[in-house]
Design a protein around this nucleic acid. Structure first.
Length: 293
DNA sequence: CTCATTTGACCGAG
DNA sequence: CTCGGTCAAATGAG
């Protein structure tokens, strides 16, 4: 019901983002309503357009926090604590430290009896499973199928949440260097099945190694990962909207219309989680659950 | 046959 | 030492 803002006592700009996202929520609700009535296609387009704009704004906000205030503490944050602590060092990072990007997403597998409700368009191969201390469910370890063929180092960890087994936490580690190929097989009952919409916002801290000039203004770009085509109205059981950072060396993605609206999609906006890097040092997690039912 | 998954062993970090 | 992540042999599915 309520929009939950991260557990880090998120404040400042994070709140603005939440506001924007709440706006999105309203729009989506409207859109859904109109979709049902199949009245005005124009109206739907308009709404989708608005959602897109707001999404962009939200991403910009998030971006500015990272670039502006630096880690975790939005510049807009109250002047209460300018205390940078020992933060002064600014670059306590060891150059050798593995800088895997870490993106956490929580998705709902409700209704999807499928074993792998977490289909994000990439093909994964499971390479391990572990019982995690304190967790009720084991964690599965997956790596990109193209690891050998293309040297793609992306991995992900999938784990059901303790309280609600229908919710699954997916942690993406590393970036895909393989050709982004949608894993076709868009599920069996695409229409009837529970639709899953996940939005993940990937935060990328400013890396010293990366020349600041490039990503200074728009380190984020949008990409939609449909099940097969580009956008248009697909039958994809889910639509993935992700924001990725353009790193210096990898020419990542091309901006695309982020919102896909299929004929009778039932929005299952789950949650938006944004995280930056390992350790809690810089992660700013914005958790917005229960956008819609 | 090939390829993906399972599962215990192994290894490194803390 | 414990715990989380990965490896790799065994097994199963197509």
């Amino acid at each position: 019901m309520e929009t939950v803002v991260d557990g880090n006592g998120g404040s400042g700009g994070g709140w603005l983002v939440v506001t924007e996202l709440s706006h999105i929520k309203e729009l989506v609700t409207q859109l859904e309503h109109h979709l049902g009535g199949s009245q005005s296609q124009e109206l739907c387009k308009h709404l989708a357009s608005q959602i897109f704009s707001i999404t962009e704004r939200s991403i910009s906000l998030i971006t500015s926090f990272h670039l502006d205030g630096g880690r975790k503490r939005p510049a807009a944050d109250v002047a209460t604590t300018p205390s940078l602590l020992s933060d002064a060092s600014d670059a306590p990072f060891k150059t050798t430290k593995k800088r895997k990007t870490r993106h956490q997403v929580r998705v709902s597998s409700a209704g999807g009896g499928g074993d792998n409700p977490v289909d994000d368009g990439h093909s994964w191969r499971k390479y391990g499973q572990k019982e995690i201390l304190g967790a009720k469910h084991p964690r599965g370890y997956y790596r990109c199928t193209h690891r050998h063929s293309q040297g793609c180092a992306a991995t992900k960890q999938v784990q059901r949440t303790d309280e609600d087994p229908t919710l699954i936490d997916v942690v993406y580690l590393g970036e895909h260097t393989c050709a982004q190929r949608a894993s076709a097989a868009a599920g069996p009952a695409a229409t009837g099945a529970a639709n899953l919409t996940t939005v993940k916002i990937e935060g990328h801290a400013v890396e010293p190694e990366v020349q600041p000039g490039l990503g200074a203004t728009t380190p984020f770009c949008l990409v939609s990962t449909p099940a097969s085509g580009c956008h248009a109205q697909e039958r994809s059981p889910f639509a993935v909207l992700s924001a990725s950072t353009v790193t210096s060396d990898s020419n990542h993605f091309v901006p695309l219309p982020p919102i896909e609206v299929a004929g009778d999609v039932h929005f299952g906006f789950e949650e938006v989680v944004m995280s930056a890097f390992d350790e809690g040092v810089d992660d700013l997690d914005i958790d917005i659950s229960s956008f819609l039912l």
